[in-house]
Design a binder for these strands. Sequence first.
DNA 1: CTGTTAGCGCGTTCAG
DNA 2: CTGAACGCGCTAACAG
Lengths: 338, 338
Amino acid sequence: MVTIKDIAKAAQVSVTTVSRALNGYDDVNEETRKKIKRFADQLGYSPNMAARSLVSKKTKTLGLLLSNVTRASSKDNIAFEVLCGMNDRAGELDYDLVLFSTTPQKQKIKSYKNLCQERGVDGVIIMGIRLDDPYLEEIVSSDIPCVLIDIPLQGPNVGYVTSDNIKGAYTAVNHLIENGHSRIGMINGHAQADVSIQRLKGYTDALKNSGIPFNPTRVLDGSFSESGGKEAMYRLLSLHPDTTAVFCSSDLMALGAVQAVKGLGRHVPDDISIIGFDNIDLTAYTSPSLTTVNQHKYESGYQAAQLLVDLLEGRNVSHHIVLNTELVKRESVKRLPL
Amino acid sequence: MVTIKDIAKAAQVSVTTVSRALNGYDDVNEETRKKIKRFADQLGYSPNMAARSLVSKKTKTLGLLLSNVTRASSKDNIAFEVLCGMNDRAGELDYDLVLFSTTPQKQKIKSYKNLCQERGVDGVIIMGIRLDDPYLEEIVSSDIPCVLIDIPLQGPNVGYVTSDNIKGAYTAVNHLIENGHSRIGMINGHAQADVSIQRLKGYTDALKNSGIPFNPTRVLDGSFSESGGKEAMYRLLSLHPDTTAVFCSSDLMALGAVQAVKGLGRHVPDDISIIGFDNIDLTAYTSPSLTTVNQHKYESGYQAAQLLVDLLEGRNVSHHIVLNTELVKRESVKRLPL
DNA sequence: CTGTTAGCGCGTTCAG
DNA sequence: CTGAACGCGCTAACAG
């Protein structure tokens, strides 16, 4: 390994001069800088981040804490798209991303703060965490800059990126209403997800706006999974056989719901209209293809990385970013005949 | 930040003792160790990796270099599944993963070796890189331990993980032959992918084994993309209108091929049988659902992480791992009537 | 414009 | 069993 010391020796200057020359300080003769740079190249020098961060207290790395990077989450590759966005922006801003692999077991041993400190990340992006996760309170109270995805927390060092879930859900449900539906069920995720809370509000708002009474028993949780959605749909239809349309809080659950309908020998959208949320790639390929609400997954990762770096570098920006959603009309919704 | 110095002060011992106590050396009194550990916990101590790796030359981090973590690669979320496997295994082995975001532009500036040295990763996993990538030769000549995915290179510090592509392709093509097909086309990826070379061999082997002459003009490249597959299919069918079945080197290309068939007003599998490779999630949901060759994506990531750590820790293991593949029969292949 | 000195937090000799 | 001293590679005062 070649160090600045080696360069100093070769260039016949002190290590300090080398350091300053390479870091673009202006109090160094252009001649010597040239010389030093030449030697650095020649020797194949690359700075040692460990040493640098030991003194500068900065590592130029962002931690990524996602609780659901597991085998299970592959179909819904939302996390991946978000990751791509983050990775791209982080790269552009000259930061690297380190993945924290945390399991619930490990969480018990190691505190969030310890995790970050050990790895010496400058800040953290957190995704896929539940509202009741024990880490959450540590995060806000800690002084480590942090950006949350889909969890609305703010603080001097905390920001978040999310989609406009209320409006998205509202638009979706309203689309059903406009198509003549009024007995509309909802399959939500679970109580410990902010998006579930938001999307439920969009659902009730849309009903209210059209004068349709809100019946809580028409709303079931499907825990964001395909099988959960399927099961919820069975329950929903046995509880409310008059249901003509269902809004699902995720595409995966919507897919499960479609399966349930098929399992009952009925048909989407002829018998039941279904609308999802997320616009995952799958939805365009299923039959019927799924009407859904598009979320800008890549963009949210991109913005999260940007926001975190803004926080890190002390820029005065808004600590919360809300991304638009759009209704994507496909085949799973049908106008109800009068 | 609390350091061993603080603990030393609190526990009334020297930093050396603290260091040894915390690192499990046996030449320290159990009493004092207890005391030191208590103080460490109490003060919320966490070791500083930068300082530690500065002296130990180890970072307990694995670099991950993937050239296609971009917006485009989301449908085929193979990379993501592999990533999950790596992340899981790395976590179990107490290593962290850092993502190198490399763009072709950056590659020109920074050499592979520099990239790794700067980040001070102990080793690297490389995926999605082309055979003609300039980094490749640097990698083998470098002394940084490295595991490649789907590129068969070996060396004292280099290993690889791949699937049994020849057998996979052979099985697929043989399946077509067993279903009465003999005029079988192939849509391959591109010349700079080892899997393309392997899968082509599986294709020709299968033909040869059944006494079917190999016609190179029946093999076209689709560059592993959906649109590329579509285009290749159009060309293939205009070049060889007698084609009754096509083996595709990736599911994405197969999906594109299906679209091309539909675009010609024809039908899969009635008019043309199609078989893919990878078994991506999409394939189960399309209509017709796609017959394909399953690859163990998660497993390959898992094994790659394991192999790299084995390399790192000097274990004497085989430097190449070949994973099985299996034919997954679905709806896109039909027996040819006599 | 440049060099000397000090110290970041930790592991590791070598003496007690 | 424990401590003092050194150095990893680098940046940051402080002097010249």
